[in-house]
Design a protein around this nucleic acid. Sequence first.
DNA 1: CAGTGGTCTAGACCACTAT
DNA 2: TAGTGGTCTAGACCACTGG
Lengths: 236, 236
Amino acid sequence: MLKYQQIANEIEKYIQDHDLKQGYKLPVLEAFIAQYGVSKSTITKSLDLLEKKGVVFQVRGSGIFVRRHKREGYVSLLSNQGFKKDLEDFQLTSKVIELNVVKPTQEVMDNLNIGPDHDVYYVKRVRYINGETLCFEESYYNKEIVTYLNKEIVSESIFQYIREGLGLKIGFSDLFLHADQLSPEEAELLGLEPGNPKFCIESLFYLTNGQPFDFSKVTYNYKQSHFFIQVNGQLI
Amino acid sequence: MLKYQQIANEIEKYIQDHDLKQGYKLPVLEAFIAQYGVSKSTITKSLDLLEKKGVVFQVRGSGIFVRRHKREGYVSLLSNQGFKKDLEDFQLTSKVIELNVVKPTQEVMDNLNIGPDHDVYYVKRVRYINGETLCFEESYYNKEIVTYLNKEIVSESIFQYIREGLGLKIGFSDLFLHADQLSPEEAELLGLEPGNPKFCIESLFYLTNGQPFDFSKVTYNYKQSHFFIQVNGQLI
DNA sequence: CAGTGGTCTAGACCACTAT
DNA sequence: TAGTGGTCTAGACCACTGG
């Protein structure tokens, strides 16, 4: 593991273990440099990483401070981890409704950037949290990249399999959010009434080399879905 | 302006002006170093900034590529700009319903981290896009930081005034999202039916020194609200 | 294995904050 | 004005990609 990542992890762990609150002042740069025996740039890179993750914020001329957000039960949209980490105290299960190799629709072709003869895996799942229906999910995987899936894999963490089983490196993703009304079929799946709200997230996942490999449409039970995002810097 | 920001801006402008598409390969680092006459670290910092903004992605051993996302009409949640930039082709107007100095509720005290005797500005607005109701917004500003507001300011861009009029530096923000059903009063304001979906965003804005100064609750017309987020890196 | 991006260093100098 | 984080350099070396 790289030095700056290692250091970032240690600082983050220290913050968690000591339950440091928002605004707590961390040691000055010089102290970190001495503690870890590295150059200023390396420490700076560690802290920039933590800042990007929303763990700290740095104030020039003043110091480095803990940033601690989080409301209970809210899931971060920026941490690519599905729900695994934010809801680790909750019981998460999945039921696979369908798993097939199909030809792409126009929408899928546009998003995965493939032609009509290209095979894709189609996966439809319902996910439960503490016994209640959390969401249902329709995913399309480019079969040239995600070469194999089966029911067992799809019942567990597909992304873990993609990373560890297939050795693929996931790079970045685009998320599209909106709210709408549930159709009768959707309401049935979620145990709600037609016309009730739904919180929809469409996502497009890319490998590090920029190839899109997964297009997913997830519809959440509005009663269960609370999300948060930490925004950094003035991106103006 | 800093070198690395300047260079980042020029590269971004070049991409926009030439309408370069996702996957387009940009010049190699060496070329940028020669072109701008700066050190490798500086160029790297420029490109890291552009990567953070979702403009490019870098692939070790391969190159630097344009990342171009965007669906028409979707608003980025990560660009702190209200709607100004993403919807610049649209007609945006506001109607101020209420502007008062009040004492904070418990919720506002918790979020702005202030006591019960502390004054806050309360602003309630409805915003329209192309004549249709986009959202209504209730905002609370810490009056010790945002010392003065009037109807005129509040009808325009409050944030521009905070930055330029008051000289405050906005640092970062937390967003909390959920969907729910409209109450009769809310439905009336948005021109929808009670029980219809609403897309809610609560946000908390901080100065660069970490002080929260604005807590806002925005309720969107679900028919008008489409958001996107670009996620970088494997923050695992 | 050549090309390309990423990490890391040591140090000079700059810019902001708080007192 | 002392303290603290930010920028920038020049260069060595590392790690990944793709033909």
